[in-house]
Simulated scan of single mutants.
Amino acid sequence: MATGARLRRRDTGMTATGATGRKRLTTSAMIASFADPGQRTTPAPFGHALNRLAEQRPEIVGLSADLAKYTDMHIFRDVHPERFFQMGMAEQSMLGAAAGMAEVGLTPFASTYCVFASRRAYDFFCLDIAEPGLNVNVVGGLPGLTTGYGPSHQATEDMAILRGMPGLTIVDPCDSVDIEQAVPQLADTPGPTYLRLLRGKVPTVLDEYDYRFELGKAAELRTGRDVLLISTGLMTMRALTAAQELGKHHVDAAVLHVPTVKPLDTERIVAEAATDRLVVTLENHSVVGGLAESVASSLAFAGQCARIVPIALPDEFLAAGALPTLHDRYGLSSDGVVRRVLAEMK
């Protein structure tokens, strides 16, 4: 791919021309599923949650940078066409327009891919939205390693880029439950927010753990005396599966889910890490600038010493390919988590 070029599926779909000259619909790694075989899923939880919120609040509006279908914004678009704005392939303009809408009392949810929101539109995000403290909710699809399309679309460093933006709230949801419950709370947040969106058929996991999303708060999903797994995003579901498997190896693992990466629930993390358990962080993000470093700095600033093992993506541009293969290669699979923890326990 040429420098600066972007391979993107438009809302109308992408086609390819075969040897016969006839057009056929292609299958894309862009929308590949990371759900485990047989796992319960919920279709388009973000789009449906935004619709429910919009029915109660007429000031809710939606914007898309030509990616409504691939960020589940099409659910909102089809029900509320008069409150939906298609901005085309222009993320900077979309965020600038969203800022103007927020200035006049609307509550925008602006969707694109994480790579475009964080890399291409940072200046507009920072100065048009964050600096005046506007409630613009930026929804980024394909966080971390949730596409096999390679570095142009794999947002492995978006949290590292955005964590330094003053006043920004960052949410990395585990599943459909997190997303559905987070949407109205993001709309109620006075300043800007950034949601790392899981789209399409999203796994449903947290309803089995008596869990409620609370902005800025971590939640203990499982207790354990040997290992503390501190996880965010889709890695929480992997942590829960790994914890069950570790039990077969006589390793008792606790799982602390951290859906809000900024502001971080430092008090809860410091309290949970104040034991002799091995602390393992898990994130669908680069090992640089994400959850691992946030946890480490929180403990260091609190004067607390703990050994931390980060399970995260490496500090490199990742390969393209099938998601299950890539997740196993880079250690994000449940089996990979089990192997790493057992190796560290020796």
Rank of each mutant, 00 (worst) to 15 (best):
1 M>P: 07
4 G>N: 14
6 R>E: 13
8 R>W: 12
17 T>L: 08
18 G>F: 03
18 G>R: 05
19 A>I: 15
19 A>C: 02
23 K>A: 15
23 K>Y: 03
32 A>N: 12
33 S>W: 01
37 P>A: 13
39 Q>K: 08
49 A>C: 08
50 L>D: 05
52 R>M: 02
52 R>H: 04
55 E>H: 12
55 E>V: 06
58 P>N: 03
59 E>R: 10
60 I>N: 02
61 V>G: 00
70 Y>G: 11
71 T>E: 08
80 H>L: 03
93 S>T: 15
94 M>F: 07
94 M>K: 11
100 G>H: 10
103 E>L: 15
104 V>H: 08
110 A>S: 14
111 S>L: 03
113 Y>C: 00
113 Y>T: 11
125 F>Q: 02
125 F>T: 04
126 C>E: 08
127 L>V: 12
138 V>P: 00
138 V>D: 11
144 G>R: 15
145 L>W: 07
145 L>I: 06
146 T>G: 09
149 Y>G: 02
150 G>K: 10
154 Q>I: 07
157 E>C: 02
159 M>P: 00
169 T>M: 05
178 D>N: 06
182 A>F: 06
182 A>L: 09
192 P>S: 09
200 G>S: 12
202 V>D: 10
205 V>T: 15
205 V>E: 09
212 R>E: 14
214 E>L: 04
218 A>N: 03
221 L>K: 00
222 R>Y: 02
225 R>M: 01
229 L>K: 05
235 M>W: 00
240 L>K: 05
246 L>S: 13
248 K>I: 00
250 H>L: 00
253 A>G: 12
262 K>E: 05
264 L>Q: 04
264 L>K: 05
267 E>S: 13
277 R>N: 08
279 V>E: 09
283 E>I: 11
283 E>C: 12
285 H>D: 05
287 V>F: 00
287 V>I: 14
290 G>F: 02
291 L>G: 06
296 A>H: 07
300 A>K: 07
302 A>N: 06
312 A>Y: 07
322 A>L: 15
322 A>W: 09
323 L>R: 08
326 L>D: 09
327 H>E: 14
331 G>K: 11
332 L>K: 03
332 L>A: 02
336 G>L: 03
341 V>L: 06
343 A>W: 04
345 M>E: 08
